[in-house]
Computed example of a mutant assay.
Amino acid sequence: MSEVDINKEFSKREAELNKVMKVCESKLKKAPSGRLKVRNYKGKSYYYVSGGGADSRLKYLRNSEYDKAKQLAQRDYDARTLDAVNRELSAIHSYQKKMPAKTYEQTYDALNPGRKVLITPHFLPDSEFVKGWLEEPYEPYEIEPGVAKHYTDLGEEVRSKSEVMIANALMKAGIPYKYECPLFLGDVKVHPDFTILKMPSRKVVYWEHLGRLDDPGYVERNLLKKIDEYEESGIFLGDGLIITRETAATPLNIKKVMRIIDHYLM
């Protein structure tokens, strides 16, 4: 886990809980009175209702009165949900009051630089983790002579204009990446177009761009076979693997690239 902003996580949870609370409160205001009793016999459920209070007599609900049972069951469920929401909100508020100003993850970041070099931290700040990840040496896949040269804004040579687009979009979004960093899928060595470090989760995600889907041989080699190899190694499309594609008639565009970045990487 990366440097944790606990207050931010709590705020997200509070917003979700408050939304559920409003829905439950609104539904409970319109809910009918009475007490629902459910009896199970030989795998079938039978529903009874009483007036509540002094009137404890049970009335059997026929099939034509099924909606009454649904309304009472929903009311009871909403009431229990509301109680659970309030208990969780109370616990969050109590925890926030007792939460120290700094978490253990932030202890290292607050140290004097001269002290930092003397210790091995239990948790690296995001900035240092990203720096270390980017500085890990690797040999990218060699670009063959005679291939048209394309360069990103960082001066990296890539294989296509579409890869320039993806690399520049990642860079502008502040997302760390490596171009064609080798990866072993079982015994097979591959070079994903982009190896991405998703922050703050520190999850590694691979982005493959398939640029010649007009070519059946390319599709067989780079789409069908490659996805199978990723999945056999536990890397699944839409989770640890992103794939973009294009043909001569439908080239990749920056709007699509940004939608993918916003959805999967932000």
Score class of each variant (00 low, 15 high):
Gln96Met: 12
Asn18Ile: 05
Ala248His: 07
Asp109Pro: 03
Gly53His: 04
Val130Cys: 05
Lys68Asp: 14
Ile243Asp: 03
His263Val: 02
Glu180Leu: 04
Pro137Lys: 02
Ile175Trp: 01
Val147Lys: 05
Met171His: 15
Lys225Asn: 07
Leu185Trp: 07
Gln106Leu: 02
Ser233Glu: 07
Gln74Asp: 13
Asp83Lys: 14
Glu65Ser: 09
Lys172Arg: 15
Ala110Glu: 15
Lys19Trp: 12
Leu72Ile: 01
Asp76Asn: 15
Tyr151Thr: 13
Ser64Glu: 10
Ala148Met: 10
Ile143Val: 13
Asn18Lys: 15
Leu237Asp: 02
Asn253Gln: 08
Pro100Ala: 01
Tyr41Gln: 15
Ile242Cys: 04
Met171Asp: 12
Lys59Pro: 05
Glu139Phe: 09
Lys226Tyr: 06
Ala248Ser: 11
Glu135Asp: 09
Arg13Trp: 02
Gly43Ser: 09
Arg221Tyr: 13
Val190Gly: 06
Glu220Trp: 03
Tyr77Ile: 03
Leu223His: 08
Trp133Ile: 10
Tyr47Val: 00
Ala31Ile: 00
Val49Ala: 11
Pro121Thr: 01
Val190Met: 10
Arg87Trp: 01
Val204Lys: 04
Thr103Arg: 12
Ala101Arg: 14
Val219Ile: 11
Ala54Leu: 08
Met165Arg: 06
Gly53Lys: 09
Glu65Phe: 01
Pro145Ile: 00
Asn40Met: 07
Ala31Gly: 01
Tyr41Lys: 12
Ser94Trp: 04
Phe10Glu: 03
Ile119Met: 15
Leu185Ser: 06
Asp78Met: 08
Arg62His: 09
Ile143Arg: 02
Ala31Cys: 01
Arg75Lys: 14
Thr81Glu: 10
Thr103Ser: 14
Glu9Met: 13
Lys198Trp: 01
Leu82His: 03
Ala69Cys: 04
Val4Gln: 15
Lys102Glu: 11
Val85Trp: 02
Lys131Cys: 05
Ser45Pro: 02
Tyr151Phe: 15
Lys161Phe: 07
Met171Gly: 00
Leu265Ile: 08
His150Val: 06
Gly52Phe: 14
Leu185Arg: 03
Glu16Trp: 06
Pro137Leu: 04
Ala79Glu: 10
Thr247Cys: 07
Lys44Asn: 07
Glu229Ser: 13
Ser233Met: 06
Ser233Trp: 05
Ser33Trp: 05
Ala54Val: 11
Gly238Asp: 03
Leu82Trp: 00
Pro140Phe: 06
Ile175Leu: 02
Arg75Cys: 07
Pro113Ser: 10
Ile227Ala: 04
Met1Asn: 07
Pro140Thr: 08
Glu9Tyr: 12
Arg87Pro: 01
Trp207Leu: 00
Asn63Arg: 14
Ser33Arg: 14
Met1Gly: 12
Ala249Ile: 06
Ile227Cys: 03
Ile196Arg: 00
Leu89His: 04
Leu197Lys: 02
Leu185Met: 08
Tyr48Phe: 15
Val205Asn: 02
Tyr104Gln: 09
His263Arg: 13
Leu252Tyr: 00
Glu142Arg: 11
Lys19Gly: 06
Pro137Asp: 01
Lys30Ala: 09
Leu61Glu: 03
Glu25Leu: 11
Leu265Asp: 03
Lys131Gly: 01
Glu105Met: 08
Ser94Gln: 11
Lys98Phe: 05
Glu139Gly: 05
Leu17Phe: 00
Ile119Asp: 04
Val219Arg: 12
Arg221Ser: 10
Leu185Glu: 03
Met258Ile: 09
Glu157Gln: 13
Gln71Lys: 15
Pro216Trp: 04
Gly174Gln: 04
Lys225Trp: 14
Asp83Glu: 10
Glu3Lys: 09
